[in-house]
Amino acid sequence: MATAPAVDQMPSGNRSEARTETEDERAGREQFERLISEDSRIEPRDWMPEAYRKTLARQISQHAHSEIIGMQPEANWISRAPSLKRKAILMAKVQDEAGHGLYLYSAAETLGTPRDKMTEDLIAGKARYSSIFNYPAVTWADMGAIGWLVDGAAIANQVPLCRASYGPYGRAMVRICKEESFHQRQGFEILLELANGTPAQKEMAQDAVNRWYAPSLMMFGPPDDDSPNSKQSMAWNIKRFSNDELRSRFVGMMVEQVKVLGLTLPDDEIRFNEDTQQWEHAPLDWNEFKEVLAGRGPCNAQRMERRREAHEDGAWVREAAAAYADKRAATAQQKAA
C-alpha cells in the first residue's frame, strides 16, 4: 500500500522523450496502448505519453476557460431580462457555466497543471478560449440565439466527449451534458416567444439567428483538411467524430428546428447530400475565424479585461478567506494544546 498524496494526482516520472525508455515506461506504454485499443479509459495515475497529457491539458483547460468567459455575454443581460422568470433562468444558466468551468478545471488539474497556473495563463492572455464568446450579445434575442445555436453546437460537440478516453474528462462531460440541455431549450423558448410576438420582436429574433448562425458552425473547428491535430485525437479516442461530421449533423438538426420557430437560417445552400449522407452548408469565412482566434474579434479585449478585473477585484476575498482559515486552524490548535 503506497501512501500517495492525492487520489487524482499525476505520478512523477514519465517525463522522458528522447532517451531510451525504462522497463517501467515500456510496461506503462504497453498498458496505455492496450487500454486505448480496448476502448477503455485512462485514469490520472496511469502512465500516458507526454503528448497525450499535453493535448488533454490544453483541450480541457481551454474548454474550462470557454465556460468561464462564456458567462460574460449572458451575465450582461441579467439586469435587463424582460421578466423575473427570465432573469431567474438566466442566472441559473450563468451559474451553471461557472460550475462547468470548475468541473473542467478539476479534470485538467489531474494532468498536473495547478489551478492557479491555468487562471494566470488565461488572464495573461496566454491561453485560448472558444472564439464564439468574442462576439457581442446586442439584443435580448441574442440570449435566445446563444442558447439555441451556441449551446446547441456545444452539446453536439460535447456528447461524444462523454466517451473521451481520459476518465476525468469524460466524467466532467457527463455532468455538463446533463445540465446543458436546459440551456438549449430555454434559448429555443426565448426565440419561439419572440417569433410569435410583434413583427418587431420577430425581426429581432431573426436578426439574432442571422448573426449567430455562422459563428456557431465555426465552433466545431476548422474543416477536416485543415485540422492537423484531429487525427491524433481520434486515434487516442479523445475525439470520436471529425469537425465536419459534427458540423454536418448539427446543420441537419437546426434546419428542422428553425421551421418550428417560424424563422429561417441565413444560408440558402443547405441541402442533404444523398451520396455522402452529409448535410452541406454555404462556405464559412475561415479568415474571420482566424482573426477572432488571433485576438482581433469584436470583443476579445473587453472579455479579457473583464475577466482580469473580476480576478483582481476578488483578490481580497481570497486573501481574507485564507487568513480566516489560518486563524481558525491556529485557535483550534491552541485549544487542543
Binding site: 455575454p73 443581460w77 495573461a124 479585449a301
Partner: peptide
C-alpha cells in the same frame, strides 16, 4: 456588450501573495 477592440496588451499581473 458591443465592445471595443482596444488592442493594448495587459500589464503583467502582480503576483498574489497566497498559498
Amino acid at each position: 456588450t458591443t465592445g471595443d477592440d482596444g488592442s493594448t496588451a495587459p500589464a503583467p499581473l502582480a503576483p498574489e501573495k497566497r498559498q
